[in-house]
């Protein structure tokens, strides 16, 4: 499946940018940009997404390298949201009133 927003023939390909804003936090997706290579992608990401010291660490990934798995509407339509509720603690009621369970 092609990357939305990119033809694959642009002069500069599309990169997705992830920034870790502070210690203890994970990298979070902040947006995308076009750059010719990883060095420019990193520098542009720094200038674009961290002008106010919002970043301790930046990851840039070619958008084409990312595989996605969002379920489409059809998938959601056929799957019951209530299925496999035994994965959740609330399904189990025999422990009610018993401490530390």
């Amino acid at each position: 499946m092609s990357t939305p927003g990119e033809t694959g023939t642009e002069t500069w390909p599309l990169w997705e940018v992830f920034v870790r804003a502070g210690r203890g936090l994970s990298h979070v997706h902040v947006g995308s940009l076009h750059a010719p290579d990883e060095t420019m992608a990193l520098r542009n990401a720094r200038d674009l997404y961290t002008r106010r010291n919002e970043g301790l660490s930046i990851w840039v990934v070619p958008a084409a390298a990312i595989t996605t798995s969002d379920p489409d509407a059809k998938g959601v339509f056929f799957e019951s949201p209530a299925a496999k509720n035994y994965r959740h603690a609330v399904y189990y009621t025999r422990a009610e009133g018993v401490k530390h369970l």
Binding site: P4, G5, E6, T7, E10, L14, G31, S32, L33, H34
Partner: peptide
């Protein structure tokens, strides 16, 4: 532009 691109239009 990055947000618009997620909808399928290219920057060019």
């Amino acid at each position: 532009y990055a947000a618009a691109q997620t909808l399928g239009i290219t920057r060019d």
